[in-house]
Each structure stands twice: as structure tokens, then as C-alpha cells.
Design a protein around this nucleic acid. Structure first.
Lengths: 149, 149
DNA sequence: GTAGCTGCAAACAATTTGCACACCG
DNA sequence: CGGTGTGCAAATTGTTTGCAGCTAC
């Protein structure tokens, strides 16, 4: 019997308490149509007249990411960018959802891309090189139609 | 006539002067069989009894990377890892060489993997989403034969 | 009430930059 | 010599943590 564990795990994944700040963060995040840097989100919040601490933004964003409700992309500069992901209503398989993105390097707008072929490819080449327990990161950057040329 | 520009560009890419430090860095880098963090390389240098400033390591590593003679991988934690790449003797097409890696997440050992399919795939999905001027990052992590299980 | 949530400020780690000195060619 | 390369120390930047107070339930 490990009810305790499950409770703990649940608490870590889904927020126990709903607050003005968490709602605001989620709202702003949902309003964006692409990946945004933490600072950008924090700035947007302030422009909305909703003061939220930078710390809180970081913390809540990580909660969302852990819960699989947000995607994270680490650009080449190592700066983290977040985006709401999937619907998140049904938490059937929160963390197991695996996918990649095409991100506009000007505006951050993004589109999810399914890549069954890539998954297979990654496994194959890794195995061929004698590697096991394979994971991978794939991010595609480009210019969206609005910022082309 | 812009000889000046070319000279400047060349100076930025290939080192004009050879020094004890640059040789040491390249030696240590060549001795490694996988990606190493800047701090690790700096540490190795000191253990070899060759004092080199952290600053210099960073600077020279970037020179190598710019010249296409070293590969850089940004792990999920945003920390940069470097590795000597290719032979580097003939600087035919320094910066144009494009490839990916399988990296052991325990020891950093790595293998290059060619991925013509991936290049095509990236272009395709990006184009399908209305993106142009496409680039991508692909890194595969796993456990090498020595650290499996 | 009280545990969780917040947020300021300080701690942190990776990386960059200013500037005087050293040394290669 | 002359300028490129070096290295210390300080500045930057992105992110985390300690802790006192606030607040949702």
C-alpha cells in the first residue's frame, strides 16, 4: 500500500491551490501562439497590470512542465522557452506525450510536428552505435510566413 | 575592394598565432573521446600542470567552434559541451559541415551520425507548416555499451 | 487556523567583457 | 617592436533558494 507516495506525487504534479497568479500565468501563456521566454511572459503579465514575481513565474512554469502541460525548448543560447501544450484537460498520460516543434526564430510562433520516423531513426542510429536507453531532442527553427524573406 | 573585410574574417576564424595554451587546449580536447564541459576541460588542463585561464578556454573553444573544427552540444540544462570534430586538417568547407551525435549521458562519449533523412524531414515539415530558412538541432542521448543497464 | 503560495533579495552557475600585461613572429 | 593572445577580476544573464508574510480552502 503506497497511498502516501501517490498523494505526494500528485501534489508535485498538480497544484493544490488555485491562485490569482497561477491563473494569470496560465492565461497569458494560453494567449501566446508560440514559445516565449520566461522574461517575456513575466513582462506580459506586468503589462496586463497583474504583478507577479519572476520567481513565481519560474516556479509555476516548471510545475506545468513537470505535469506535461507545457513544453520547454532550450534554444542554442541555453535560454528556456515555454508554451502551453496539448489540451491538458484530461491528464491521461501527462508526461508520456512526446513531440517536437517548428519555431519561428523571430516571433516564437510554433507548430507541433509529429515525427514517428524520427523516433524510429533515433532508436536505430543509437542502437547501431551501441547505445541504449535512448532519448532525443529535436527542434526545428525557421521563419514563419509572416517573417519570411 | 574589400580585402580588409576578408582579412578580418579570416583572422576571426583561423588563429594567427600559435601559443602554448591553444596547443594544450587542442591536445586535451583531442584526448577526450566525447563531449566535455568547459569546466571539465579547464580542470583537465590544470591536472596536466598546464595553467590556462578559464577565459582563454572559452575563447579558444569558440574559435574552434566558429571554424567548424569543434562541435557544440547544449544539453537540456543549457550547459555547453565541446568536442573536436572531423580531422580539421583541410579546411575545405569548415562551417558547412552539418551532422549530429549520439551522446552517452553518463560519460559523454559520442558518435557522429549522418542523417540525410533528417535534413530532408526537417525541411519538409517546416515547409508544410509555412516556415522557410530552416535550421534544426538534433541531439540523441543514451547509454553507451559501457554504461548500459 | 495552517499549509501552500508568493515574492523579495541574495545565492548561484555559466559565460562574457574590460583592460593591462605577456609573448609570438 | 607590434599587435595578438592571455588572464584576472568584475559585470551579465538566466535561474534557484532562503525565508517572512499572505491567502486560499
Amino acid at each position: 500500500l503506497r497511498v502516501g507516495d501517490e498523494t505526494l506525487a500528485a501534489a508535485r504534479v498538480s497544484r493544490v491551490r488555485s491562485t490569482r497568479q497561477s491563473q494569470a500565468i496560465e492565461a497569458v501563456l494560453g494567449r501566446q501562439d508560440g514559445f516565449r521566454t520566461v522574461q517575456q511572459l513575466h513582462g506580459a503579465l506586468q503589462e496586463d497590470g497583474i504583478p507577479v514575481g519572476l520567481t513565481t513565474v519560474y516556479r509555476y512554469l516548471n510545475v506545468l512542465a513537470d505535469a506535461g502541460r507545457a513544453d520547454v525548448v532550450h534554444g542554442a543560447d541555453g535560454e528556456a522557452r515555454f508554451r502551453l501544450c496539448g489540451t491538458g484537460e484530461d491528464s491521461a498520460a501527462p508526461t508520456d506525450d512526446h513531440h517536437h516543434h517548428v519555431v519561428c526564430r523571430v516571433c516564437g510562433r510554433s507548430a507541433e510536428v509529429s515525427a514517428p520516423e524520427i523516433e524510429a531513426w533515433a532508436q536505430a542510429v543509437a542502437a547501431a552505435a551501441g547505445f541504449t536507453d535512448v532519448t532525443h531532442t529535436v527542434e526545428v527553427f525557421g521563419l514563419c510566413s509572416e517573417h519570411a524573406g
